[in-house]
């Protein structure tokens, strides 16, 4: 049965060691693609265009042109097929669901066409973000934001997240283990595994009580350490900001990539005038 499968899977996934390793692998993996070598500031500017402009484009030729471009780029960026599948299924499902409900309410299938073009639009935007953010290194990204004027706290938080994630996972695992080593799991599964799910979920929620207290202790030392390591000193000093992000440098490749994009956009918009 479907639910049974699901719970089996859940139980497997509840092997915390598995989850921990998976998360760490995802977070710390560094895959290389064409986009990783580009300057994150250029990528951000590029993304800025493709995240906003498509909203205001209604011409089908242009949208298809944009989509084609994004598809090629996702291939180059080696985006994981899983993410793409999830994206596609989500968009298709939305259209079908809307069509179905529209029919129920006495409408007709004419709803599908506009929704289809909306989906193309959304696909362009989502693919643009997937391409950029799946290959951008979060730390480089945060440094780019820092350079562009975002608060130093954000950039610090990204680096700190990498520092603290393994510790948090380790602590969480220990706390859950403490619950399980002293608790008693329900002997029966209950209807639809309800008892088991209830047992695990309450444990998950309760585990945040110790986690909050332990983290509060930790964050105190952390902020003190930030202070004695001169972080607030640096936040005021523009020169330090430059030193920190000095490694961000645009190369010829960045400008070529921008040029390529501009030319392509020109072609697409021109074609739309003709066709």
């Amino acid at each position: 049965m479907f639910t049974l499968e699901w719970v089996k899977k859940l139980e497997d996934r509840l092997s915390l060691e598995y989850i921990k390793q998976e998360l760490l692998r995802t977070a710390f993996s560094t895959e290389k693609s064409f986009f990783t070598q580009l300057d994150p500031r250029i990528l951000l500017a590029w993304y800025g265009y493709f995240a906003i402009v498509p909203w205001f484009i209604y011409e089908h030729v242009t949208l298809v042109g944009y989509l084609l471009f994004m598809v090629i780029l996702t291939v180059i960026a080696r985006v994981s097929p899983l993410i793409l599948t999830v994206l596609a299924v989500g968009l298709a499902g939305e259209i079908l669901l809307l069509g179905f409900i529209a029919l129920l309410f006495g409408g007709d299938l004419s709803i599908v066409a506009p929704m289809f073009w909306l989906s193309i639009k959304l696909a362009v935007i989502s693919l643009a973000s997937v391409t950029v953010f799946s290959s951008i290194n979060p730390e480089k990204f945060s440094d780019a934001l820092l350079r562009l004027g975002a608060p130093a706290q954000f950039s610090f938080s990204v680096a700190y997240a990498y520092r603290i994630l393994p510790t948090l996972l380790e602590e969480f695992q220990q706390i859950i283990l403490s619950y399980r080593l002293r608790g008693l799991a329900p002997s029966k599964n209950g209807v639809l595994y309800f008892r088991k799910i209830y047992y695990y979920i309450t444990m998950l929620i309760k585990s945040f009580y110790p986690l909050i207290l332990n983290s509060a202790k930790r964050s105190r030392t952390t902020v003190e350490a930030l202070e004695i390591k001169g972080f607030s000193y640096a936040a005021k000093d523009k020169r330090v900001l430059k030193m920190k992000t000095n490694y961000l440098q645009t190369s010829q490749m960045d400008w070529l990539f921008l040029l390529l994009t501009v030319c392509y956009v020109v072609i697409v918009h021109s074609l739309q005038l003709i066709l």
Binding site: A159, Y160, R163, L226, G230, A234, V240, K244
Partner: peptide, 16 residues
């Protein structure tokens, strides 16, 4: 506070 060893050792002089 930083992800890697060298970054952490450099953090203070960098901040100053």
């Amino acid at each position: 506070l930083r992800p890697t060893a060298l970054e952490d050792a450099c953090f203070m002089p960098l901040n100053y």
